[in-house]
Amino acid sequence: MLDLQELTNAVGNLDEPKVLGMLKNFVAANPGIEETTAVVNACQQGMTIVGDLFDKKEYFVGDLIFAGELLTSAIDILKPAMGKESSAKVGKIVLATVEGDLHDIGKNIFKSMSEAAGFEVYDLGIDTPASAFVEKVKEVKPDIVGMSGVLTLALDSMKNTVDALKEAGLRDSVKVIIGGNPVTEQACQMIGADAFTTNAAEGVKLCQGWVK
């Protein structure tokens, strides 16, 4: 059995060869679903270390992006051993860059970190009109709606999206979080969102607080 603490640390150190090596050896021994779940959790805890190092300014945005890539590769290796629906999802997030805005780096960082934290994320992509949010919320009934944007203009689109959710009678069934360069407390109030952040790791913590 692999050393879970060592794996967590290797993920935290973003030591890709070591992480992937450990996981390949682990999967080769045909592990059970329970063991595999423990290994997935260890990887997720490694991502928490990454978030902490980011807060401490030891890691930077480039490292968060790489961490997301590393976790995707890790999960790909573990998938055959995970069984169907083995890891219970902690919640659902409908996520997109809002209408008019084509930037998706921040959104993708948040996506990979929230997936690492056990959320099921429905990513609608970029330049997403309010109506697409409404349709997806109706369809998958998420706990959380995440809106991302870099242009100041994205704030208007975020407001339109919240208004559209209200009109469709869906606003009270979800929490709304906004992220990206232009978001501030004031913008958050104007838009009618529940929370705002410019830090993906913090955003994930806020979401975890909502689904506890």
């Binding site: 008019g100 805005d101 930037h103 998706d104 780096i105 203009l153």
Partner: peptide
């Protein structure tokens, strides 16, 4: 360099 639906020319990944 692509124009978004709002008329802003942007640089996607």
């Amino acid at each position: 360099f692509v124009m978004g639906s709002n008329g802003f020319l942007q640089h996607p990944e």
